[in-house]
Design a protein around this nucleic acid. Structure first.
Lengths: 201, 201, 201, 201
DNA sequence: CATGAATGAGGATTCATTCAT
DNA sequence: TATGAATGAATCCTCATTCAT
């Protein structure tokens, strides 16, 4: 379903899965390539046949996750009827986020930490920008139609994405997967954050 | 101003400052003790006179920042008149957060990443729990007085803290310090996230 | 010839040889792993492919030497006719000791110093106990047949082994290998130490 | 009573005692000067006021012990009547050895390991040679009077000293101090090792 | 005189990477 | 193609030694 399905050999997929686990558990600096190999059940050298080095590997993991997230957000929006209103579009984004986080918790957790990534390359940054862009456009359109509050759309997006990340951290701290009812309730709360307050306020 | 001023020697302060920088730039796994020493302008061995090891150092950095955050939040609340309403209290928390983030951006950035910290010890976790607690109480009281929306207070707190973190990430991505006007606008938006929606909605 | 020939790769053998040299020259505390690597003509990291750490390496060195010693003592006894008398058995032990010390002077020197070894593990201690045991049995049997003087066999063994160690130290101090004629003369002297004094004495 | 009483300040005595303990427990390479300071209950720097460095400290420890041993052996011989026979003289040496080992077990244990000492300086070696000399003279005289077996006196001495060391190792392995009865029995055994065998043997 | 903070060299160990098999 | 042995740089940490107080 995603762009990588075509370029990923079963080998690289195994490596990426293992790398994601290790990177999520120990952060880039603490993630050892030999540990990734072990986890993948292959020889160390084999990793270097698919990736030029640790940095490239981490970028590939990042890109796969980010691309999956992008795919989730796009499908969520695409599933909407053409005349869907702003609230529906915002809900769809939130739901898409939740769907991705549920489908690939480790991937989501990894992305969370990567605003950091001094090792991220241009291609990875570009992908991240695409996700940002998509969200910004939705907010921007909502503001244009008068449904959402004024202000830099990027700021509003940062608040909403931040809130979602906060939610997943909370769930992770509890050791539980994200509860569906909570996701729905939070979507409602976040809608109030975004929507243009009624004039008499 | 904070509790540590009395126990911190100039040496440990220098080390903590340098360690904060390095830890923020490279995360725990990637932060090399020799690099901290360089940054502090001291010999490697000197660090080990103040801290038994890298883990203890990272915990001390964490605690200093968390304690400062706690101090900021507490003073923000303490500055309120006794009869301050829920909105004022929520605003105070948000403002306290912003004041801390402005006063110690690196410290705030470091705290953000530490849900991870498998190296955090019990004392550090306890301090983190105190901050969480403080926020949860404010939300809880607001719910009790009917001002805030229903739901697990901890979840609401996670949304709000998450939103704030999103905001600072956004600012950091732009390379700019957090703009005051934006903080105020965001505080307003977040208030709508928290407040109990008017019945006819 | 010994049990290890089969399990030892050429690499581990190289490492063990080098480690024995360094350990003998500088004792455990002063033996640096990098120095062992140099001596073996390999990279430092390579040592850690064969041994989990310095302690394990020192134990392996100890065991190889102790096992060789045990093999020498056993063959010396095994070469005796079934009806060999006590004196022949004692001589055989002494000769076995000398054969080992001549064949592997460094190994013998290393064993000498290891009553110390706080780093020796259970397996190493067990091996040491086997050697002790073998000697104690010989003495015990000799006492039973009335040939050897009374007293705790372990004490007699400690005197004899100690005497042999003294001899090798003396030779080492002179820088010469142990002279065969001296070994024979010493064996005679030691026999008088062990044998039951004639009654009228 | 010994030569050092005059030159040793209470300070250096404390240091030497502590150093002996640490050196005995961990061998030269593993003995840390800061550990010696701790054990002595003084500051690290203070050690360097009495000794130029670790090597000098270890030599001083060695010399103090060796000198004490020499004193013990000399007094043991001096206490003998002028017409004492060879056996009495040999016994006296053995007893002197035992007295020293009992009075200063750590010192004795330390000396045992020091044939090794690549860090021993000329003065230390000279002192060791004096002890050796004393023993060799006794043996030599005994051979001259026809009481002791022929052969290089130094070899005989090495056998006897070695036997004594073996005895103390054995006692140490048992965790017990050296038993007096055992020392006496061993002295008898050792006498037979040294004495010239009766002709018809 | 005694101290102990400060230091950098050096020790044990791990890890990213290469390359012969 | 996949492997994993080999490597040396780089990690964390300790220690001998100095020197300002």
């Amino acid at each position: 379903m995603n762009i990588h399905s075509m370029t990923e050999t079963p080998m690289t997929a195994r490596v990426l899965d293992a790398a994601l686990e290790v990177l999520t558990e120990r952060t880039y600096g603490g993630a050892a390539v030999p540990r990734v190999a072990e986890r993948a059940g292959i020889g160390v050298g084999t990793i270097y046949r698919s990736f030029p080095g640790k940095e490239a590997l981490a970028n590939a993991v990042f890109r796969r996750a980010k691309q999956d997230l992008l795919d989730h957000l796009r499908s969520a929006l695409a599933a909407l009827p053409d005349d869907a209103g702003t609230r529906a579009r915002v809900q769809a984004m939130w739901t898409g986020l939740a769907a991705f986080a549920a489908a690939d918790p480790a991937g989501f957790a990894y992305l969370e930490h990567q605003q950091h990534g001094s090792y991220l390359d241009a291609e990875s940054e570009a992908l991240a920008a695409q996700v940002e862009s998509l969200a910004v456009e939705v907010v921007h359109a909502g503001q244009a139609s008068g449904d959402l509050r004024d202000g830099d759309p990027a700021v509003l997006v940062s608040l909403v994405f931040g809130a979602f990340v906060g939610l997943t951290k909370h769930a992770r701290a509890l050791g539980a997967p994200i509860d569906d009812a909570v996701v729905v309730a939070a979507a409602d709360a976040v809608w109030y954050l975004l929507r243009r307050p009624s004039t008499p306020s």
